[in-house]
């Protein structure tokens, strides 16, 4: 399975993402500069955290209007996996690949610490490695992580089981304690906490590794089924 980690000017978790896939899991992975990129030969696209374009206008807004988004949209429409973490999630929201928007944290401060999350849906292709309702620990690092969505869309997200992770102790004011959501097709996941920063016990938690293992396992099952 081949992963593309998209690098925008201002991305800063791109190497952590690459390290998780390439060094820890032994996958093929490339850091792909957003300009003049060709994503056709990748099985999964990873949008890393950071501050693309210095968060100008709104977090993720400028990156969401860049040319590479057309390729990412085509990749998503083809049913292939896309994972956006932190700024990557903000970019997916701004691009309209996921519903809702990010407001500043209710405390107005940047937050950087471990949070306990509940796995609200363990049946997505990103979360089959977790148990139902399992509590996991991942770091957060964001200033704009206060997930906002209108009531109708929120009830739709709940009804269709598209809330994938929730905070057990909501740190930022997110609607319905939402930490991560998935699209209706089930192949585009956005989340504020950082699984790629929790891939070895030495880092404080290795709960994040199972998210990537789930992606790989489910890709292999689908690949074998299509042979």
């Amino acid at each position: 399975m081949k992963f593309a980690v998209i690098v925008f000017p201002g991305s800063n978790c791109d190497r952590d993402m690459y390290y998780a896939l390439h060094d820890v899991l032994g996958m093929e992975a490339d850091l792909v500069w957003y300009e003049h990129s060709n994503l056709e030969n990748y099985d999964a696209i990873l949008l890393p955290g950071g501050f693309s374009y210095g968060d100008y206008l709104r977090s993720g807004a400028i990156a969401s209007a860049s040319g590479v988004m057309q390729q990412i949209k085509a990749h998503a429409e083809a049913g292939k996996p896309v994972l956006g973490v932190c700024n990557g999630f903000q970019i997916l929201l701004e691009a309209g690949l996921l519903p809702g928007a990010m407001l500043p944290n209710k405390t107005l401060s940047f937050m950087c610490h471990y949070e306990a999350l509940a796995v609200a849906n363990h049946e997505t292709s990103f979360t089959t490695g977790f148990d139902k309702g399992e509590i996991i620990h991942l770091p957060i690092a964001h200033g704009d992580g206060n997930y906002f969505v209108d009531d109708a869309t929120l009830s739709e997200l709940k009804k269709s089981n598209r809330i994938v992770f929730t905070y057990t102790n909501n740190p930022n004011g997110s609607a319905a304690d939402i930490a991560g959501i998935i699209n209706s097709q089930g192949n585009v996941l956005g989340m504020m906490p950082h699984p790629e920063r929790a891939v070895e016990k030495l880092l404080g938690s290795d709960d994040g590794i199972r998210l990537f293992q789930s992606m790989i396992e489910n890709w292999r099952v689908a690949y074998a089924a299509n042979l």
Binding site: L57, A101, F148
Partner: peptide, 9 residues
């Protein structure tokens, strides 16, 4: 609609 404002919020 496309960039300067985010109609969600």
């Amino acid at each position: 609609d496309k960039l300067l404002a985010n109609p969600v919020m």
